[in-house]
Amino acid sequence: MKILIVEDDGKIYELVKEKFEQWSFEVAGVEDFQKVMEVFIAESPELVILDVNLPVYDGFYWCQQIRTVSKTPIVFLSSREHPMDIVMAMNVGADDYIQKPFNLDVLVAKVQALLRRTYSYGDTISDVIEWNGAVLDLKKGSLHYNDREIHLTKNEFFILRLLLEERGKIVSREELMRRLWEDEKFVSDNTLSVNITRIRTKLEEIGLNDKIVTKKGQGYLVN
């Protein structure tokens, strides 16, 4: 799956690109902002992320241009948060609108949802995370290993998925809490400990022992 990112701020472009590449998307960018259409036609991406404030022409203009030739889903990135701007974006044919400052996880989630809706997905984007022979089903929120399946609660699934996404890195407890809270799950420190213990017990049930390592004073590590 290829995504075209039309963003004139180099840093934001790099960070968004990195994130999508982590999720094994192919990413294309634009260098000359007079030639957005040329790049779009040459790359023929499955989805476009479009900034509103651009040099030469703005995002609304390019969205209209793209709409004359294609129905590719378009997500707007904008620092304008006035309802009129959102109405405007929808009028020129945008599929979604994300306000700056945004959260990369939210952006990825919205893009995935759009792709799912547009391209009767399944065969196109992976909806599972593979991990040492175990498979985390992102849709059902369950983990499969050796023909055995365990069901996870919302919070447990969220924590495990995060640890798997950050595989090989130590994730601090504070960061786990942050991610949970940013997803509007306002858990306490104790609840987090309880959740981790429960995930460990469940993993042991299907024979995945000691997979979540505690690094004292730093956080948790999954390999």
């Binding site: 701020d9 840093k11 934001i12 960070l15 968004v16 990195e18 620092s79 700056k100 400052p101 945004f102 959260n103 990369l104 950050e166 890195k169 130590i170 994730v171 601090s172 504070e174 960061e175 942050r178």
Partner: peptide
């Protein structure tokens, strides 16, 4: 936004 994304990108290993 760029600053926030940079901070978030390095937040995991605080």
């Amino acid at each position: 936004t760029a600053m926030k994304l940079l901070i978030n990108a390095h937040r995991t290993e605080l």
